[in-house]
Amino acid sequence: MISKRIIPCLDIAHGKVVKGVRFEGVKEVDDPVSLAKRYSEAGADELVFYDIMASYEERTLFLDVVSKVADQINIPFMVGGGIRSLEDMHACLKAGADKISLNSAAIDDPSLISKGALRFGSQCIVLSMDVLVEENGFARVMKKGGREATSLEAFSWATQGIELGAGEIVLNVINQDGTKEGFDVSLTSDFAKRFNVPIIASGGAGNAQHMAEVLVAGADAALAASIFHFNEVSIQEVKEEVRKAGCIVR
């Protein structure tokens, strides 16, 4: 059967890896290509690269990173950030990416999901959503990296995205993001039960147990950044923990 995936996430700005805490206080970490290679060799199942500047001027720099990464690693990887058109998607895929993550642009124009899925296949189109769980329990979809509220509710937005052809969902819960206190297990578990596409849990990974917890609860993959970047835990340690918890890992 399919194994649970452990996915290091690399935020890229000016061609370098950075990690924002709660999307603020950006701190530089490492060279994306060497980091990607290191993770791939250490047993990462997939990688994610977000272009957090996502500006027109930076585009070439980001695509250059993508193609260098593709040259060096032999596991699947996803790219996101600032992808607003079929041409953007095509450029990333041509540079060697396997999957495209759509977020704010899909909120502004949901047809981007269906256009991408028709042209490149659903397996290639990932709907990434930043969700803020409000005090009354309303799961609100945010955009622009979590800075701007929308009127969308998380489950209905995911339903729509899947109907339009998204083949996978990244559920990033902003309440947890950067806290290192663990994922939002209950929301992620509800997502995994509700939807028939893989759910990638994101936001809050602080240790190996957190990763195991959310995967046992039904997530297909768990994403983390700083715990890997700062060598707090190795990918193999995470996998050991997930295996002990009864899940299949590679």
């Binding site: 194994s3 995936r5 083949g167 996978e168 028939n196 596409v197 893989p198 590679r250």
Partner: peptide
């Protein structure tokens, strides 16, 4: 089971 069959399998 989810479709597509996507991911790492033995």
């Amino acid at each position: 089971l989810k479709i597509p069959h996507m991911g790492w399998n033995k």
